[in-house]
Design a protein around this nucleic acid. Structure first.
Length: 486
RNA sequence: GGCGCGUUCGUCUAGCGGUUUAGGACACCGCCCUCUCAAGGCGGGGAUCACGGGUUCGAAUCCCGUACGCGCUACCA
């Protein structure tokens, strides 16, 4: 098996959205596959009809593709081992369950849910170490089984776990793990509605789809012995297992909706870059062993390896995500940001206004190092899109003196003489006026910034002026002189 | 309760028996740069490596125990 090309799968159940923990699992599968020139497969585990969600599969696929995790085989792209929807493989599971029954590794169980509950209650009363099915139906005679079957009595198929066995398997992340079969319940394999449970379906499919490495969340570690038992019962070779540490809430419980956003779509909609989310999530439980923290997907592919995956859970801390987002944003070309900024403007109050690409590109260049999100190219510097409505009070107090209006008028008047001032023209004019007045440049710069932007922070003043343009500056300075009273 | 897994700065982590006065990143604070804010550079505070025993000349690193956390314990995945 070790010489085969690796085949791994991401096998989510369609819940309606892609959980960031799921994204991390999918990513590690993808990285492992691509690094080793193997195949990455998407398989939908939709065997719970009670949890059917309309449109869930489409959403899942959309989120996966948004993140850039293209798969080689899957429900919408096909492949040689389909179908990739478990709900379309029912006959396969049935057939394999029959095989297990025939060889005594599984058995029909006709117990009612009432008996099961009673059993559990009784076991609880007796303070038994663990509640387990009592194998009642294992001892049914051939006749009894036939009779019940012909009467269409509802039944499930259970795994026949033999007592006093050591079940040992190797986990790539955690090493050798050992379980005692006495602690393992006779797991239901086929539910009474004819659908398989996860345990049967994932083993059968992983084998049939020639999956070499099962890379999944740690929540599956405890049920792996059941899977090992199934591989043995079918006389199939086991895949390699790698159980990934969980993603946690700030209070270290399993990452959940209650304590923040968990859907990839939520982060996308909040304006996080896919590069940043992928980069961030990759580092939650893995690192290359050096100090590097900035990666693009293809670079992760180059460096990823399963044996550098951590054992302990990791808190999903969005503060660090934010800084990574800013870093990825800064590394993008202005032209790439331009497209995103146009989308952002469409979502804003300025959607009906026209802005030239040239103008927006100037804003991007001026603001790029001052923002963490594309949306901030709008909300943090509204003065590029409209004249300030009011002026920051603290800045007025600090920088707007009684002589300020006259000084600014001088500046404006000088500007009028220049047709289309360049950036250095603004710089020159301002320097000249300052010198003329015998004041520091700051005495002009700060009021000018306040008058034109309404704020005390922003890009370099000459960038600001150049982007606004002469006419707009004059208008805004006049307005400010009228409106700002000291 | 049972079984399993885990435990290094607030958070993500490096470390795989001596190179460690435990390194980096984010966050925080200070300085430099500077027209502001950022970005960038430099520096600072912050981890008795969960705790207790061993093994060893020597342990964050190996072993055992305890505590704590998490996961599983469904006709859910």
């Amino acid at each position: 098996m070790i010489n085969e090309t690796p085949r791994v799968r991401f096998a989510p159940s369609p819940t309606g959205y892609l959980h960031v923990g799921g994204l991390r699992t999918a990513l590690y599968n993808y990285l492992f596959a691509k690094h080793n020139h193997g195949k990455f497969i998407l398989r939908i585990e939709d065997t719970d009809r009670n949890r059917y969600v309309e449109g869930a599969i489409e959403k899942l696929i959309e989120a996966l593709k948004w993140a850039g995790l293209e798969y080689d085989e899957g429900p919408d792209v096909g492949g040689d081992f389909g179908p990739y929807l478990q709900s379309k493989r029912l006959n396969i599971y049935k057939q394999h369950a029959d095989e297990l029954i025939l060889e005594g590794n599984a058995y029909y169980c006709f117990c009612t849910s009432e008996r099961l509950t009673a059993l559990r209650e009784e076991q609880e009363k007796l303070k038994l170490p663990q509640a387990k099915y009592d194998k009642h139906c294992l001892h049914l005679s051939e006749e009894e089984i036939k009779k019940s079957l012909s009467k269409n009595t509802p039944y499930v198929v259970r795994l026949n776990v033999k007592p006093n066995q050591k079940i040992v398997f190797n986990d790539i992340v955690r090493g050798t793990i050992e379980f005692d079969s006495n602690n393992i319940d006779d797991q239901i394999l086929i539910k009474s509605d004819g659908y398989p449970t996860y345990h049967l379906a994932n083993v059968v499919d992983d084998h049939l789809m020639k999956i070499t490495h099962v890379i999944r969340g740690e929540e599956w570690l405890s049920s792996t012995p059941k899977h090992v038992l199934l591989y043995d019962a079918f006389s199939w070779e086991q895949p390699f297992f790698a159980h990934l540490p969980l993603l946690l809430n700030p209070d270290r419980s399993k990452l959940s909706k209650r304590q923040g956003d968990v859907a990839v779509e939520d982060y996308r909609d909040k304006g996080y870059l896919k590069e940043a989310l992928v980069n961030f999530v990759a580092l939650l439980g893995w690192n290359a062993g050096d100090d590097r923290e900035f990666y693009y997907l293809n670079e992760l592919v180059e460096t990823f390896s399963l044996d550098r995956v951590n054992k302990a859970g990791a808190v999903f801390d969005t503060v660090k995500l934010n800084s990574l987002n800013a870093e990825h944003l800064r590394k993008k070309s202005n032209n790439e940001i331009l497209g995103m900024l146009k989308d952002e403007i469409q979502k804003s109050q300025y959607k009906n206004q026209e802005y030239s690409d040239e103008f927006l590109l100037l804003i991007i260049e001026a603001m790029k190092e001052r923002v963490s999100f594309v949306s901030e190219f709008v909300i943090t510097c509204p003065y590029f899109y409209e004249a300030p409505k009011d002026y920051e009070q603290k800045a007025i107090e600090k920088n707007w003196k009684s002589e300020t209006p006259n000084q600014l008028m001088k500046f404006i008047n000088k500007l009028r003489d220049i047709d289309t001032p360049s950036k250095s023209d603004y710089e020159l004019v301002l320097a000249n006026i300052a010198e003329e007045l015998g004041i520091g440049k700051g005495k002009l710069i700060h009021p000018l910034r306040l008058a034109t932007s309404g704020q005390s922070t922003g890009p370099g003043i000459f960038d600001l002026l150049y982007i606004l343009g002469k006419e707009e500056i004059i208008k805004r300075v006049n307005t400010a002189i009228e409106k700002i009273k000291v």
